[in-house]
């Protein structure tokens, strides 16, 4: 009837209905949980909030979580960049298999991931027994937490970079090589400027998942308060102690990191589209 009605769903009624439905569902399903986290965390006011954060065990959990992220994120960033470089710049047999292998941590349940490491490096595992001879205990200690976190978060940087680097192609880099650039110069001057926003998002997403990993870490950590308790495990402990405000205080820190991650993603996508 109206001449503006060109494509499906352009009618004003259906348009308004769908937008309204989408907004309402998103508010109910995704936005309200955020509201709950912060309302519960501030249920005792600012003073209570600060007091809960300054709790000895909460501070220790924050410290351990940051420490784990500090080791995990650089390791997985380096790996992700090398993997993306390998599979987008060279063709070789097994390339597709390699790209599929890297998705395994996405598909494997975090509890199973934790179990994999416990079986191998635990006191019954062959690697664990071998290391035990030298009094090295990896499980139920921070190295175990770092190892499973590396496993769970290793795909993120590569997954962000591979589609982008594939799309950009290798012409610019080949030109640089012909002009005599060294490998490092090539990466720093040509590749990095082209991928930096996607790389930034990959890194920040790796960080968000590293600080938030729960299932795998709870298998190998032992959750010893003040020793091997990361922030997500601390959330669980406080929640089970019926210290709801304390649990949501710790949760609000993690939610804050999640919100920063989303903000960086939005900015990075916008900037990357202009590179």
């Amino acid at each position: 009837m109206s001449s503006k009605h060109h494509r499906v769903g352009d009618g004003p009624l259906i348009r308004r209905t769908l937008i309204g439905l989408a907004v309402v569902l998103t508010v109910l399903f995704l936005f309200m949980p955020l509201v709950v986290i912060f309302t519960q965390a501030f249920a005792q006011g600012w003073a209570g909030y600060i007091g809960n954060i300054l709790d000895e065990y909460t501070l220790h959990a924050i410290g351990l979580t940051l420490f784990v992220a500090l080791l995990t994120v650089p390791l997985n960033t380096v790996f992700g960049v090398f993997l993306a470089w390998l599979v987008t710049r060279f063709s070789f047999p097994g390339r597709r298999l390699l790209i599929s292998l890297i998705d395994i941590p996405f598909a494997v349940s975090p509890v199973v991931a934790g179990l994999l490491y416990l079986l191998l490096y635990g006191s019954n595992g062959w690697a664990g027994q071998w290391l035990g001879q030298y009094d090295v205990e990896l499980m139920f200690a921070w190295p175990g937490i770092v190892m499973v976190t590396v496993f769970v978060t290793c795909p993120f940087v590569a997954r962000e970079l591979i589609p982008l680097m594939q799309q950009q192609g290798r012409d610019e880099e080949e030109a640089a090589v012909v002009l005599g650039a060294s490998g490092w110069q090539l990466f720093r001057r040509v590749t990095l400027p082209n991928i930096r926003w996607a790389l930034l998002y990959g890194v920040i997403l790796t960080n968000a998942r590293a600080v938030g990993e729960f299932g795998a870490v709870s298998v190998v950590s032992g959750s010893i308060r003040g020793e091997t308790n990361t922030l997500p495990l601390h959330v669980e402990l406080l929640y089970q102690d019926h210290n709801i405000v304390g649990a949501f205080t710790a949760a609000s820190l993690l939610a804050g990191i999640a919100l920063i991650t989303l903000a960086v993603k939005t900015i990075a996508e916008w900037r990357q589209s202009r590179v």
Partner: peptide, 28 residues
């Protein structure tokens, strides 16, 4: 209006730790 925000918040479940999602949904 607000479309960018809606788009951004779609990824919240990937960025939010699962334990946090768990206690929040249980409370709700």
């Amino acid at each position: 209006p607000g479309k960018r925000l809606l788009d951004a918040i779609m990824d919240l479940p990937f960025a939010l730790p699962t334990a946090v999602a768990g206690i929040t949904l249980a409370t709700l």
